[in-house]
Design a binder for these strands. Structure first.
Length: 302
DNA sequence: AATCGAGCCAACCGCAGCCGG
DNA sequence: GCCGGCTGCGGTTGGCTCGAT
């Protein structure tokens, strides 16, 4: 499709945005709303391409954006969603209110992927989950072996909700113990085509790619999804029991994965399973946020 | 004090989906 | 059904910051 790259136009500014440009963009959007990015810069008096304006607004200027201080809970949620969705940052961001896909992507690349790397190097030398969890305890946030972490140091400069919300390393270790990280290979998906692009078409018996890509494992190992989801569930795998996570952990899902490998169930069924699971993870996250709020309120009385 | 290297993140680039003509 | 423009997405990059030496 012959599309002219909008940013290649002569005379358009590039690089970091100035406060004046920001205010022009914000003022324009406040008056006329988002959209029509192509024509927006001209109307707003900006020497930027529409794409750049959109990016700036979406990733930085939107009023509902939370910046920095990814909490352990968000961290946990990102890991779990990533294990489900792969590099579908926009989908993951959609489940994290106030977070942008760019921020999550950056966070993953700078923090979590390193943790994953450490994790995989340890898992290759060990066979039991217990062992790998123990190893991960020493590698949370991908901190370097010297123990100096710029991210942690930076976070001391910024107001750190992470430190306020949780009891530091213990909680981080707890998160680690709850999660098993996989690294799906990058998948490209359209907004409404996650299943279609997951790599299995009607005539294929293959697994969806996000599962195929799970660490290059076969479906038996994919059953380790149990580790992806929050433990704290009973080992019997009983669904219900008051905890929504019990549903997430529901073995029916894992069984469906196997069924798919062996019998090829319908795309729709699987899509529904995945959507349900996402909803449940998200519900859990919302609950965590509520609990955090309650804890903060109670702390404030102490 | 200067230099180096690692980490972080805003922004850019190119591709693909969607949609209207 | 085809074409072209717009938009959204994910990968990548460049520059800034900061700790280590």
């Amino acid at each position: 499709m012959g599309r002219t790259p909008c940013c290649s136009q002569v005379g358009l500014r590039r690089g970091p945005w100035t406060p004046r440009e920001d205010s022009l963009l914000v003022n324009y959007i406040q008056h006329y709303g988002e959209g029509h990015w192509r024509s927006l810069p001209k109307k707003a008096g900006l020497l930027r391409c529409g794409k750049s304006c959109r990016l700036r607004w979406m990733n930085y200027l939107r009023p509902d954006i939370k910046r920095g201080n990814i909490t352990p809970d968000e961290d946990d949620l990102i890991i779990r969603l990533h294990s489900l969705l792969g590099n579908r940052w926009s989908l993951i961001a959609g489940r994290l209110p106030g977070r942008t896909d760019n921020e999550i992507k950056n966070y993953w690349n700078s923090h979590l992927s390193k943790r994953l790397k450490n994790d995989t190097t340890t898992t290759t030398t060990t066979t039991t989950t217990t062992t790998t969890v123990d190893k991960r305890h020493t590698n949370y946030h991908g901190r370097n072996p010297k123990g100096t972490s710029k991210s942690s140091e930076k976070s001391t400069k910024k107001p750190s909700t992470e430190k306020n919300n949780r009891d530091g390393a213990n909680c981080e270790q707890e998160v680690i113990a709850k999660t098993k990280i996989y690294l799906p290979k990058p998948i490209r998906v359209g907004q409404f085509s996650s299943i279609k692009n997951d790599g299995f078409d009607a005539g294929s018996n293959s697994m969806p790619s996000f599962l195929d890509n799970v660490h290059g494992q076969d479906c038996t190992e994919v059953l380790n999804l149990d580790h992806v989801f929050k433990p704290g569930v009973d080992q019997g795998g009983n669904a219900g029991g008051g905890d929504p996570l019990l549903c997430v952990k529901d073995h029916d899902f894992a069984n469906n994965i196997i069924d798919r490998r062996c019998e090829s169930i319908s795309c729709h069924d699987f899509s529904q399973q995945k959507d349900d699971m996402l909803d449940k993870i998200y519900e859990e996250y919302q609950r965590l946020l509520e609990v955090e709020d309650l804890l903060q309120i109670s702390d404030s009385f102490c």
